[in-house]
Each structure stands twice: as C-alpha cells, then as structure tokens.
Simulated assay, not measured.
Amino acid sequence: MKHANISIFVPHVGCPNQCSFCNQRSISGVQTVPDAAFVTKTCKDALKNLGEHSAEAEIAFFGGSFTAINRELMVSLLEAAFAYVQNGSFKGIRVSTRPDAINDEILSLLRRYGVTAIELGAQSMDDEVLRKNLRGHTAQDVINASHLIQQHDFELGLQMMVGLYGDTPETALQTAKKLIALRPQTVRIYPTVVIKHTMLAELYEQGAYTPISVQEAVQISAKLLELFESSGIRVIRLGLHASDLLEHDLLAGGYHPAMRELCEAELFAKSIFTVIKQHNIPQGDICIKIPKGCISKAIGQHKSNLKALLNCGYRAKFIEDGTLTGYNCIIQQQSKEVEHCI
C-alpha cells in the first residue's frame, strides 16, 4: 500500500508573522481551526476508508506551525490523535512547523503524545530570500532545529519553495544541496504561487515581483527531484494540493494540479533524448524500455514526450522493463540497443 496521511489542517494559527506568500486558508482549502472532536471524527472516517491498511498510515497535522499554536489547543489535538496511535489504529503522528518553534521541551512533549515525524518549513536556505519573504527565521535556525529533531530520534522532513521573491534557480539549487547535507528522510518541494491577499500579490500587482511560470517551475523542480532522489531522500510531495479555494484565489505562479507528473515526464524526456544524442540513433521506429509502472510518466501528460519524439522524427513505442529503475531507459532500434542510467 502507498503511504497515506490522515491530513488535518490547522490554518494559520500560531504563526508569529505573515510570510509573503501565505494565505493558509486558500492553500489548505480549510476555513476553520479543528478541535479534538474534529480529530476524532477524521480518524474514525479514515478507519472506515482504509480498513486493514490503516495501521500503515500516519495522522498528520499540517498548516499553521503546529508547535507554535496555543499550547492547550495543541495538546488537545494531540491527545485526540494519540488515542488512535495507542490502540494500534495508526502508526504515528506527523506534524509540520517552523524551524524557530522547536526546542527540547516541545520535542519531549511531542514524543509523549506519539509524534514520530516532524517537518520543518525551511523554504529557503538563503538568508536574504528568507528576509525578503518575511519568514522571521534564518538558515541557521533550520540547521539547529534539524539537528535537535534528529537528536531526539524523530523522522526529519524538510520543505522548500522555489520561485520566492528574490529567489533564483541558482539559490534554489543551493538550498537543495544544504537541505541534503542535513540528511532528512523526506522532502517536499513547492513552486511558489501568488494568492490573493498576500504580500506577493501586492508585489505582483505593482510589477515588483515576477512569479515563476509553470514551465520554469517544472524545469527547476525536476532538477531538484532528481537531486534529492539520487541522494536517497524521498520527495513525498511536489506542488500544492489542488483545491477549489486555491484555484479561486490563485493569481499567478507555478501551480499545476499534476506538478509531480510534469516533472517526472521532464526527467524521462531528458533521459530519452540523452540516449538518442549520445548514440546518434537515426530517425525512425524505436522501442523505449522504461521502469515498470512508468509508461504514462514516460509518455508525458497529453503525450507530450511522444509528440516531441515524433516531431524529431522518432515513432516511439514504450514498453516496461522490470530491471530498470528511476528514470533510466533502454532504446532499441532494429538490432541496436543502448541504455542510459541516471
């Protein structure tokens, strides 16, 4: 079974400031703050839907800096969730928070209530980018919090954004390398979107900020996806969750409801055309072997890669090969067979 989160969003409570990009109610699609009763109902509903697979799922508190919210509210939410961890219904609890809202006392409390994984919203490891986007913490805060989380034996997750105000592909790449050095188990990559009623929206409307386009987001995010995966780090989310509220409030930026699929198609295209170029494969009919379960990704959304190959004179057929992994491919043409490994 694919990993599942029982997601409970806590929109914009506890945050000490308003970041440039943040309108949590639009991003999460949630308008109200949950209470213990809501957590209990969510867990009961998830048990019915997941059945025997529930024991592999985590209850996840996402949204507004969980460890910075009112302590009484935080404990009440944890208590309601922990009851389902104690009885074996779910395997643990995952929370997301700010790097400057972590200390030994908080980590001890989270451990007491069954939290197993903590995700930090790093967003950037460039202090100037953090300052321009009103994050209120530094890159060193990310490093300190990450080390503290690891010392307390929690699973560490890190979240980064690309295309922030003042960000460039180069600073995003440097952020990824610095996050890799912290050895997290998981990473989330979020291309920046401009949402109504945010500082970025004001800068965009004034012409002071040029948002990242979808194509630019795909290009840089695909590079980051490849970099993290080649370092043994799971990318558990790429792009914001689709929601009617988000799409209603969206003004511009790198949003696509299938962002990860676009990035994976980009990496398969890179692999395929690298083989063609390196081995001077002549135009004509080719058979492309790709890893099992990846045919739709390799063909691309709306058959984009298939069409790109045809435009270059290649009539391609895709087949699965259980010996291949990642974005590797083997191209056959008559008796010739060549392989590309990433």
Rank of each mutant, 00 (worst) to 15 (best):
162 V>A: 08
128 E>V: 11
341 C>H: 15
52 E>W: 09
285 D>H: 13
144 N>L: 06
332 Q>W: 00
249 D>P: 00
263 C>P: 00
310 L>T: 06
274 T>A: 12
80 A>I: 11
149 I>T: 03
180 I>D: 06
232 G>E: 12
114 G>Q: 03
296 S>W: 06
83 A>M: 09
287 C>P: 00
74 M>Q: 14
267 L>Y: 08
270 K>I: 05
266 E>Q: 12
57 A>I: 10
25 R>N: 15
61 F>W: 08
143 I>K: 15
322 G>T: 03
95 V>P: 02
40 T>D: 13
120 L>C: 02
123 Q>G: 07
101 A>Q: 09
274 T>V: 02
103 N>V: 07
162 V>L: 03
262 L>S: 04
212 I>S: 00
112 R>S: 10
18 Q>G: 08
44 K>R: 13
185 Q>D: 10
32 T>G: 02
292 K>F: 11
66 F>Q: 04
12 H>Y: 15
273 F>P: 02
299 I>G: 01
13 V>W: 11
183 R>D: 12
55 A>P: 00
22 C>S: 10
301 Q>A: 00
299 I>V: 15
262 L>K: 01
59 I>Y: 05
337 E>P: 00
123 Q>M: 07
33 V>G: 04
214 V>E: 02
171 T>E: 08
79 E>N: 12
180 I>Q: 07
120 L>P: 01
156 L>K: 07
304 S>F: 00
160 M>R: 04
117 A>P: 04
39 V>P: 06
280 N>M: 09
37 A>V: 06
318 F>D: 02
124 S>H: 03
67 T>S: 14
239 G>H: 04
258 A>K: 12
145 A>N: 03
273 F>M: 09
3 H>I: 09
238 L>I: 02
80 A>V: 08
278 Q>S: 13
304 S>A: 11
110 L>S: 02
13 V>F: 14
92 G>N: 06
226 E>Q: 14
247 E>D: 07
